[in-house]
Simulated assay, not measured.
Amino acid sequence: MESTDNTIKTGPWRVALRTQGQEIPFIMEAVEEEGKTMLYLVNGGERILLNDLQPQGDSLKIGLHIFDADLIARVNGDTMQGRFVKNDSPTPYSIPFTAVHGQQHRFAADPAPALYDFGGKWEVVFSDTAGNRYDAIGMFEQQDNHVTGTFLTETGDYRYLEGQAAGDQLKLSTFDGNHTYLFTASPTGDSTLQGKFYSGMSGYETWTARRNPNAELASADTLTYLKPSYETLSFTFPNLQGEQVSLSDQKYQGKVVLVQLLGSWCPNCMDETQFLAPYYEKNKDRGLEIIGLGFERSPEFEKAAARLAKMKDRLDVGYDLLVAGTSDKEAAARALPALNHVMSFPTTIFIGRDGKVRKIHTGFSGPGTGQYYEGWVAEFNKTMEELLAEK
């Protein structure tokens, strides 16, 4: 019998979460760096570093990046089993998983040949069990059985999805340390699909898609705006040390200010922050400030500040982060009464040197969206150059 000393062998591990009668697989790679075991979550072109591994009784506690979640694993040679524990949900939960060393297939190890081409751009409608509907765009690339891609919505994207086409069946999954997603689909015609979407312990939606190379969503710059009679924004919230910070403070006067509505629990916010943090370091001497307003799961200041501090450290954030409230969108809207609403985390507010709000961008199309991310970067740089050039 193999020992259970919780030593993780280097190389790939196929991990399978089991929830809602489904298997949601992902790949985790173990490497040795400077005598220490590091893990990476692998989804498509993304690798998320996990370097917080701590013994916990007869198991190993693997901290999941910036998120308030862990993998609790019992390692036994070439296998491990345990639970994905999500601490920051309104009702904390855990999902069981098993893992096998040396396996790199996400779904079937020897899939049937693909009989349908899922590649391309799709006009998508998701529907939940209550009958609520929302639009999306599906973007997929397929090479034989291998499929990657994502879904874009008006409030963000579903990040890096990876999976396979086998016969006429599509399966895509992702696990980023916070979200547990499985998408399945099959064709209902030459250019139409019918699918299912499973998330976490109980999230379930259906989706339909129609191939449409011209599919578009509403402009992200039109969804959130200032109420009539407002031109500026005002707020005062505590920083991570508990000191009150206001947008009217001298530090921000006469500067271009970006106000980022975010949460440490939000993978789209992580993506945006990984862009904004180095951008700030490169441009802060040009008269730029960024203020991150953190809307956290916990209403307790100490817990919320600790989560934001971990995010600040892991993502090397040099700009100010404030504890602004809880992650409820209605509460966020009450905290910023000049806005018509808050419909997404992140939301980014561009303020000129004169203190006036110039633009509000809802959601974020991250690097997993390819051309949409590149388009966002180009538009962001154009807007910022114009604002920074103003006297």
Results as ranks from 00 to 15, higher is better:
residue 5 D to R: 10
residue 10 T to R: 03
residue 14 R to V: 14
residue 14 R to P: 11
residue 17 L to N: 13
residue 17 L to I: 08
residue 17 L to R: 13
residue 21 G to Y: 11
residue 25 P to E: 08
residue 26 F to D: 01
residue 26 F to L: 06
residue 35 G to I: 02
residue 35 G to N: 04
residue 36 K to I: 01
residue 37 T to I: 15
residue 41 L to Y: 02
residue 42 V to T: 04
residue 43 N to F: 02
residue 44 G to D: 04
residue 47 R to H: 15
residue 48 I to P: 01
residue 49 L to D: 14
residue 50 L to F: 05
residue 50 L to K: 01
residue 51 N to M: 00
residue 52 D to N: 03
residue 55 P to Q: 01
residue 57 G to L: 07
residue 58 D to C: 08
residue 59 S to L: 04
residue 62 I to G: 03
residue 71 L to P: 09
residue 71 L to V: 04
residue 74 R to C: 04
residue 76 N to R: 03
residue 93 Y to K: 04
residue 93 Y to R: 06
residue 95 I to H: 03
residue 97 F to M: 08
residue 97 F to D: 11
residue 98 T to A: 12
residue 104 Q to P: 06
residue 106 R to C: 00
residue 107 F to R: 02
residue 109 A to I: 03
residue 111 P to Q: 02
residue 111 P to M: 02
residue 115 L to R: 06
residue 117 D to Y: 02
residue 123 E to C: 09
residue 133 R to S: 08
residue 135 D to F: 12
residue 135 D to G: 09
residue 135 D to Q: 11
residue 137 I to Y: 06
residue 138 G to Y: 05
residue 140 F to S: 04
residue 140 F to Y: 08
residue 141 E to Q: 07
residue 142 Q to W: 10
residue 142 Q to R: 07
residue 142 Q to H: 10
residue 142 Q to Y: 08
residue 144 D to K: 14
residue 145 N to H: 15
residue 148 T to A: 00
residue 151 F to K: 10
residue 154 E to W: 04
residue 156 G to V: 14
residue 156 G to N: 11
residue 157 D to Q: 09
residue 158 Y to D: 06
residue 160 Y to M: 05
residue 166 A to D: 00
residue 166 A to Y: 04
residue 167 G to D: 12
residue 170 L to H: 13
residue 171 K to A: 12
residue 172 L to W: 01
residue 176 D to K: 12
residue 176 D to H: 09
residue 177 G to H: 06
residue 184 T to I: 07
residue 188 T to Q: 10
residue 195 G to C: 11
residue 200 G to Y: 11
residue 201 M to L: 13
residue 204 Y to H: 04
residue 208 T to R: 12
residue 211 R to C: 08
residue 215 A to I: 00
residue 221 D to M: 14
residue 224 T to F: 01
residue 225 Y to Q: 03
residue 232 T to K: 13
residue 232 T to D: 04
residue 235 F to W: 04
residue 242 G to M: 05
residue 243 E to T: 15
residue 243 E to S: 15
residue 245 V to F: 11
residue 249 D to I: 14
residue 251 K to P: 03
residue 263 G to W: 05
residue 264 S to Y: 12
residue 266 C to T: 00
residue 267 P to I: 15
residue 271 D to G: 00
residue 273 T to C: 06
residue 281 E to C: 08
residue 281 E to N: 14
residue 283 N to Y: 11
residue 283 N to F: 11
residue 285 D to T: 13
residue 286 R to Q: 14
residue 292 G to N: 10
residue 293 L to P: 12
residue 294 G to E: 15
residue 297 R to K: 08
residue 298 S to Y: 13
residue 298 S to L: 12
residue 300 E to L: 09
residue 303 K to Q: 06
residue 314 R to H: 08
residue 315 L to C: 09
residue 318 G to K: 05
residue 321 L to H: 07
residue 329 K to G: 01
residue 329 K to D: 00
residue 338 A to G: 03
residue 339 L to V: 09
residue 342 V to G: 12
residue 347 T to F: 09
residue 347 T to Q: 05
residue 351 I to M: 13
residue 352 G to Q: 11
residue 353 R to Q: 05
residue 356 K to E: 03
residue 366 G to P: 09
residue 369 T to Q: 03
residue 369 T to E: 02
residue 370 G to S: 13
residue 382 K to R: 05
residue 388 L to A: 00
residue 388 L to I: 02
residue 390 E to N: 15
residue 390 E to M: 15
